[in-house]
Amino acid sequence: MKRFAAGLVGVALLLASAACGAPAPHAVSHAAAVSAPAGTYPVGVRTLALSRGKARPLPTTVWYPARQAGRDAPIAAGRFPVVIYSHGLHSLPAYHAQIVTRWVAAGFVVAAPAYPRTREGTRRFSRADVRNQPADAWYVVRKVLALPAFAGHLDGSRIGAAGHSAGGYTTAGLFTAGHDRRLRGGIVIAGAGMAGAFAGPSAAMLFVHGTADPTVPIEAARAAYDRVHWPKSFLALPGQDHGAYLTPGQPGFTQVLATTLDFLRWILYDDAGARSRLELAI
Rank of each mutant, 00 (worst) to 15 (best):
H30T: 08
H30G: 02
A31G: 15
A31T: 12
A32L: 06
A32C: 01
A32G: 08
A32P: 03
A33M: 02
A33H: 01
S35E: 05
G39H: 02
G39K: 01
G39Y: 04
G39S: 05
Y41P: 00
Y41E: 02
P42C: 01
G44Q: 00
V45A: 08
V45K: 06
V45Q: 09
R46F: 00
R46E: 09
L48Q: 09
L48N: 09
L48C: 06
A49Y: 05
A49P: 07
S51A: 15
S51C: 06
G53F: 05
K54Q: 14
K54P: 12
R56W: 07
R56V: 08
R56L: 04
R56Y: 12
L58W: 03
L58T: 02
P59V: 06
P59T: 01
P59W: 09
T60Y: 11
T61C: 06
T61G: 01
V62S: 14
V62D: 07
V62R: 10
W63Q: 00
W63D: 04
W63R: 05
Y64M: 00
Y64K: 03
Y64F: 13
P65H: 03
P65K: 02
A66Q: 01
A66P: 00
Q68D: 04
Q68N: 10
A69Q: 12
A69Y: 03
A73T: 02
A73G: 10
P74H: 11
A76L: 11
A77I: 06
G78C: 03
G78Q: 02
G78F: 04
R79C: 03
R79H: 02
F80D: 02
F80W: 11
F80Q: 08
P81I: 02
P81R: 10
V82S: 12
V83S: 07
V83L: 15
I84W: 03
S86Y: 09
H87F: 11
G88E: 10
L89T: 15
S91Y: 00
S91I: 07
P93T: 00
A94D: 14
H96L: 08
V100T: 15
V100K: 06
V100W: 07
R102L: 07
A106M: 07
F108Y: 14
V110Q: 12
P113W: 14
P113C: 09
P113H: 11
A114G: 14
P116R: 13
R117V: 09
T118A: 10
T118V: 15
G121W: 05
T122Y: 12
R124A: 15
F125C: 13
S126P: 05
R127G: 12
R127W: 14
A128M: 11
D129V: 05
V130K: 10
R131T: 15
N132K: 14
P134L: 13
A135E: 13
D136F: 12
W138C: 02
W138D: 10
V141R: 07
V141C: 10
R142C: 03
R142P: 08
R142A: 13
R142D: 14
